[in-house]
C-alpha cells in the first residue's frame, strides 16, 4: 500500500504556505523591534546613534506612525505566520479545521496585514512589488480559491 493518497497540489500548497509563513514572520519580528526602537527614539532622539536607523525612524514619525501601530502590525504579522504554520500541518494531514479554516484565516490575515501596512506605513517602508506583491495581493486569493474550490472534498470534515 502506498503511504498516502494526498493530492500533490495539497502538498504544493502546504509548501507555499510554509514559505509565506516565513516571509510573514520576519517582517512581523522586524516591526515589533522597530516599535521598541521608535518608542526609545521618541523618548530620546539622540539615543539612536546609527544614521540609517535614525533616518528610518524619522520617516516613520513624519508619517505619523506611532509605536503601538507598529507593534500591532508586528503582532498581526506573527499571528498570520502562526496561522500559516498551523495550516501547513492541516493541509498535510488533510484536516478540515487546521487545513481548510486555518488557511482561510491565514489568507484573510495576510490580506488584512498588507492593507493595514499600506494604510499605516510610509511609502519608503513598502516595497509592494515582486515577491511581496504576490503575497499581498495574489496569494491570499489563490489560497482561498484552492482550499474552498479545488480541494473542497479533500479537506471536508471526517
Amino acid at each position: 500500500m502506498a503511504i498516502s493518497d494526498r493530492p500533490g497540489g495539497l502538498t504544493a500548497l502546504a509548501a507555499l504556505n510554509g514559505f509565506f509563513a516565513i516571509s510573514c514572520a520576519f517582517p512581523g519580528l522586524q516591526r515589533i523591534l522597530s516599535s521598541y526602537r521608535l518608542r526609545a527614539h521618541l523618548d530620546d532622539p539622540e539615543a539612536t546613534a546609527d544614521r540609517w536607523s535614525r533616518r528610518n525612524l524619522e520617516s516613520l514619525i513624519e508619517a505619523d506612525v506611532d509605536p503601538q501601530q507598529m507593534e500591532l502590525l508586528g503582532i498581526l504579522g506573527l499571528v498570520v505566520a502562526l496561522l500559516l504554520a498551523v495550516s501547513v500541518w492541516g493541509l498535510l494531514k488533510r484536516n478540515h479545521w487546521a487545513g481548510k479554516w486555518g488557511s482561510t484565516l491565514a489568507a484573510v490575515g495576510m490580506a488584512s496585514v498588507s492593507w493595514l501596512a499600506v494604510q499605516v506605513l510610509p511609502l519608503d517602508q513598502l516595497r509592494g512589488v515582486g515577491m511581496d506583491l504576490v503575497r499581498q495581493m495574489f496569494y491570499p486569493l489563490f489560497l482561498l480559491i484552492m482550499v474552498h474550490g479545488i480541494f473542497r472534498k479533500d479537506l471536508r470534515l471526517r
Binding site: M1, A2, S4, D5, R6, P7, K153
Partner: peptide
C-alpha cells in the same frame, strides 16, 4: 470510493 488510487494495493 473517496480514496485516491495511490492507496490501493
Amino acid at each position: 470510493l473517496d480514496r485516491g488510487a495511490a492507496v490501493l494495493s
